[in-house]
Computed example of a mutant assay.
Amino acid sequence: MSNRNITRRQCLVGACGLGGLGLGMALGVKAELSSTKSINIENAEEPYPRNANEALVRLKEGNKRFINDKPYHAHTNITWRSLLVEIQKPFATILGCSDSRVPPEFIFDTGFGELFTIRLAGNIISEDVIGSLQYAVIHLHTPLIVVLGHEGCGAVTATVEEMLDRAKEPERIESLIQLIKPGLSKLDLKQRHNALLSAAVEANVRWSIQQLSVLPERERIDIEKRAVIIGGVYDLATGRVRFLD
């Protein structure tokens, strides 16, 4: 899959919720973050993303720094944190896996207050996740949602192993597997094991996105008309995030 910017069609999907955000400020100037409060952002390196496309570019640039071992480590000091005590304005929402090797803030080289992260095994869609996504787009106005899977995902691997009749998990893990399994139903289980696991990780990301697209109308509109939703897969070996078409 190519690693290109969001398409024009995707931008139009998210445009309804972006027009009134007033995010045209550059870091280093005073920005309105709510109707009653504002914070003064000082000594910053990058412009604040005004829309989903710019948010994606920001994530890609941060991931590139991470890959090249040249992180900014910006927006972590006590002065910056003090600005976030009463308000936050993340520019993207990340639905990722709980895996300890995949912290979105490091992968995208971001600091406090820049990403709204939702993490649980297998980056699955559940009622709580849907509520968190609605909160992110309705109240925090994040214009971009990234469903982020990763190579070597334990939850996805456990699902594949069960589909191959190689393992049976305890009840609670089994319930997690049942949420992942439908998205892997079209996989060729006879392919090489490593290739199968990689294909399963990507299929699971696409499955999570698909589930958001078939929510009850009100819930779907709440999310889709306020944000662009895309998928990505993180490579543990290289540190690279491959964004999906």
Rank of each mutant, 00 (worst) to 15 (best):
Y135Q: 05
E169T: 14
L12K: 15
L115C: 11
F66G: 01
K64W: 02
V160T: 05
V156F: 10
C16P: 00
G28H: 13
F112V: 02
S82A: 15
N3E: 10
N40Q: 14
S208P: 02
N43E: 12
F66H: 06
L197A: 06
I221R: 15
F108H: 07
L144S: 08
I125Q: 02
T157H: 09
M1H: 13
R119Y: 04
G111A: 00
D222V: 08
Y72R: 02
I177K: 06
G19E: 00
I173G: 07
E114N: 03
I125T: 03
L115D: 09
A55E: 06
G149E: 00
N40M: 13
Y48N: 05
P216F: 06
A15H: 12
A52W: 12
D109E: 05
P47I: 05
N43Q: 13
A44P: 01
Q191N: 14
I230W: 10
D235C: 14
Y135V: 03
G232T: 05
A26N: 14
A44S: 14
R206M: 08
S132L: 09
E151W: 03
S38D: 09
V129F: 03
V102M: 12
C16Y: 10
N194F: 12
N77R: 01
E202A: 13
W207N: 11
L59N: 05
N123M: 04
D128E: 15
T76P: 00
S34V: 01
I180C: 07
M163C: 04
G131Q: 08
L144I: 08
R226Y: 01
E217C: 09
G111I: 04
V146P: 07
L59D: 00
V214P: 01
P49E: 10
I145Y: 02
I173D: 04
V129P: 06
I221L: 15
V137E: 02
G231R: 01
N5T: 12
S82I: 01
D165H: 14
V228N: 07
Y234W: 13
T157W: 05
G111M: 00
L120Q: 15
N204K: 12
D222L: 12
L179G: 02
G20V: 05
V156Q: 10
G183P: 01
L244D: 09
L56D: 10
Q10C: 09
A92Q: 08
T238V: 09
V85S: 08
L18Y: 08
Y234K: 15
F116R: 06
V57C: 13
I138S: 04
A195G: 13
V102A: 14
R172C: 11
Q88I: 04
A158T: 07
I223M: 02
A158P: 07
E45D: 10
M25T: 08
V85C: 07
F108G: 05
H141K: 11
V13C: 09
P104D: 12
H193C: 05
S185D: 13
V102S: 13
T76I: 00
P103D: 09
K190H: 11
V205W: 04
R242L: 12
E217H: 12
G62Y: 03
G62V: 01
I6Y: 10
N194G: 11
L184N: 09
P104C: 12
L197I: 15
Y135M: 08
A44C: 13
K168T: 15
T93D: 02
R166H: 14
T36Y: 04
V85R: 14
A158Q: 06
